[in-house]
């Protein structure tokens, strides 16, 4: 008996970032949840193995005893991806990454974002390139947030970033993939994983990103701002898998006219 083709290609189709293998192609943020328990349940339902966190001042004084995010998302279980969210200069982003590496005992995978505009949250590309170059030299494994510009994406890859993460639409906008052609061009030209980061609104957006050939999707608000975040996390988990399988399966060609699925032969009418 010949071996049946696998119906679960993701098992043999790992996402590899900086030499480490992951089963899940969905990466999730941890912001905007009601509380840490909801965060924990949503991350669990998403199936994500890589979770993004922000780096901020520790609560001092009255709130010093508050539970810590890393207590509910232990680094022993999840790959923690500290981000430079809120940084508007290369210097602030680099400083944040250095502190994060110290916080996580030398763990050097970081998500670099250098913002350029408070209204759109679009990245400052010159500052992003500058920060990426320095961080790579310092030994960081940089997953970089960028615009959907294919030339910039390639440049970031050439600088040594381990993954390039073009936006689908502005952070937190939920507008879906505004320029699928650019995402596709970026994917076609890339030798490192390409992940859509930001702008996904619902499950179909995540599936489309994967059908375009992206290696993964990173999202936060689409899950956290859903009416039922835990259920949406589950939906995103499935959408990313479905989109990946559809991409690997290869879609049928589009046709202008109908084409019957039932045979004409054998008709008795």
């Amino acid at each position: 008996m010949s071996a049946l083709p696998s119906t679960e290609p993701h098992h043999a189709d790992p996402l590899i970032i900086a030499g480490k293998r992951y089963t899940s192609r969905l990466l999730v943020g941890t912001g905007k949840y009601r509380d840490l328990e909801e965060t924990r349940r949503a991350v669990e339902a998403s199936g994500a193995e890589i979770v993004t966190v922000a780096i901020r001042r520790t609560n001092i004084g009255q709130n010093a005893g508050e539970p810590n995010l890393l207590d509910v998302l232990p680094p022993e279980r999840y790959t923690i991806l500290p981000n430079t969210a809120g940084c508007y200069t290369a210097e602030d982003a680099i400083r944040t990454c250095r502190l994060a590496r110290e916080l996580l005992d030398g763990h050097d995978l970081v998500k670099l974002e250098v913002l350029g505009d408070q209204k759109t949250l679009f990245p400052d590309i010159p500052a992003t390139l500058k920060a990426a170059e320095i961080l790579v030299k310092e030994g960081f494994k940089v997953m970089v947030y960028t615009t959907d510009d294919p030339l910039i994406a390639k440049r970031l890859e050439e600088l040594g970033c381990v993954a390039v993460m073009p936006l689908a639409a502005p952070i937190g906008s939920g507008l879906g993939i505004r320029n699928p052609y650019n995402i596709r061009l970026i994917v076609e030209n890339a030798k490192v994983p390409i992940l859509v980061d930001a702008g996904v609104g619902t499950a179909s957006d995540a599936a489309i990103a994967m059908e375009l050939g992206c290696d993964g999707v990173l999202m936060n608000t689409a899950i956290a701002a859903a009416r039922n975040p835990v259920l949406m996390a589950s939906a995103m988990n499935k959408a990313v898998q479905a989109g990946r399988e559809a991409y690997l399966a290869g879609r049928m060609p589009r046709k202008l006219y109908g084409s019957a699925s039932s045979p004409i032969e054998g008709s008795f009418f």
């Binding site: 999730v28 943020g29 941890t30 912001g31 905007k32 949840y33 840490l36 965060t39 993004t52 966190v53 922000a54 780096i55 901020r56 001042r57 520790t58 001092i60 810590n68 995010l69 890393l70 923690i80 500290p82 981000n83 969210a85 502190l99 994060a100 916080l103 952070i171 937190g172 930001a198 990173l218 999202m219 936060n220 608000t221 956290a224």
Partner: peptide, 10 residues
Amino acid sequence: VEIIHAVGGG
């Protein structure tokens, strides 16, 4: 002195 930790973020 700056003391930092990880918080929820995307």
